[in-house]
Design a protein around this nucleic acid. Structure first.
Lengths: 244, 244
DNA sequence: AAATCAAACTGATATAGATCAACTCACCGT
DNA sequence: ACGGTGAGTTGATCTATATCAGTTTGATTT
């Protein structure tokens, strides 16, 4: 039983978290990092489909993905769900709750997932003394605005092929940041989630995967994908059919 | 010439700005408002098509629309422009520049437009002593994230009719906040801007206007619109064709 | 091993919206 | 006044993607 204790006695902290370079910490001094670490809550892992927060819940915290992945969706006026973002390890979500103190989105785990909960009140308090934290949270929100605008541009001006290629390249890039393979990975979300996010039907997503495979751009089997020709995929994205 | 001087001697300030209730000021104490007012720059009005900032410019300031209107667009990889937002009086824009100290978007005046420039460095400094300013800017950014997500949902899951009806209702609501008529107004943007923003073609936008007019939902003549049946437009938006 | 069920894939057909083409109209400069 | 230019509208056709209808696969239960 000593052994068990040893395991529990090794607490997860920002200091030993593989994601820390992507997440909050950056240029914090050691004592500052300690203070930040103190306020972060690390619950037990979430199961598939378990929610982190739901639209309408009072806003308390922002969250960082430690492992696994998360989808965030709005409930439209008529109750349909609309996926607005996927979050991978090292990424931070929940900013939508700040505007009027209630989350606008629901966030659910796409697989077994661990998140760090960062209570906003305490983060804000910390930020008032550590200006680099204030700066950083502001930049994170700005980044979230930009990512939203990137998706708007994708949805407003691109074909099904371009949309799916963009998503795949985005996932690839983000996995690379985690030092994971950017060419071989498992899609954490279902075809339904992908099609909803991209404003397409599942059939179109499925056919587009098949097409990319037929063209030799990738190999796909259910959720496993291997990108074989990144240049070709990049070309698909760039080819404004204006010149096709 | 005394007359001219009188005009110039009456400075624009947040205190006498019709938009102040929508904009930054809210619950500032008188002395705090004074400090804020001091850092705000108010240049001479911009002409149509004149830019406030361009994608790639170093980030210096956020901006509030005092009068007129602004469109913000990204330049896609392949150089096409994609409109991501319209801003009306009392609304604040420029947050996209914060993430990496360069604006991602270009912002241009859609008509003769006055903006207040709020140098971010100074605003940030002010925020460190006046916590209500810090809170408020954070909420504004969160609001911008939510607005982006609302547009994502609109683009991903709605028909041309629903998209245009949504835009019209959004403009209507925002004009109401300015105590202006919510049923009779002038669209500040061209059909091209509308179609680009909504992910449609100009022809489809034009036809949809005609259809709404034929149905008696509105009257439209070039940029002048009069909404005749808000309930019907709301119905168009709500009617998920799931049950159509 | 058979039965059940959901996710993913594929084929046939339908359609919303794009594309192509023409026309109208207001505005601008000469 | 007169051609020119660009924004907006309307009509005819085309097409990318949705819809509808199975089929396949793999996981789960019995």
């Amino acid at each position: 039983m000593k052994h068990m204790e040893t395991i529990f006695a090794c607490p997860i902290s920002c200091r030993n978290c593989r994601m820390s370079s992507l997440c909050i910490p950056m240029s914090l001094r050691s004592d500052e990092l300690y203070k930040l670490d103190q306020i972060i809550l690390r619950g037990k892992p979430l199961q598939v489909r378990q929610s982190i927060f739901r639209a309408g819940d009072p806003f308390t915290s922002i969250y960082a993905v430690r492992s696994g992945s998360v989808k965030a969706f709005r409930l439209d006026d008529d109750g349909r769900e609309q996926v607005v973002a996927f979050y991978l390890p090292g990424e931070i979500f929940g900013w939508d709750g700040l505007a009027d103190n209630h989350y606008q989105n629901t966030a659910v785990a796409l697989e077994t997932t661990s998140v760090c909960e960062i209570p906003f009140e305490q983060l804000d308090h910390l930020a008032s003394s550590i200006t680099s934290i204030q700066n950083y949270t502001t930049k994170l929100m700005s980044r979230e605005i930009i990512n939203g605008q990137r998706l708007i541009a994708l949805l407003a001006g691109n074909s099904a092929h371009q949309r799916l290629a963009s998503l795949l390249m985005s996932l690839s890039d983000r996995l690379a940041l985690q030092k994971l393979s950017s060419t071989r990975f498992r899609l954490p979300m279902s075809r339904g989630d992908i099609s909803n996010y991209l404003g397409l039907t599942v059939e179109t997503v499925s056919r587009t995967f098949s097409y990319f495979q037929k063209m030799g751009y990738l190999r796909v089997n259910k959720k496993e994908v291997e990108l074989l020709n990144l240049d070709a995929l990049q070309e698909v994205i760039a080819d404004s059919d204006v010149f096709a």
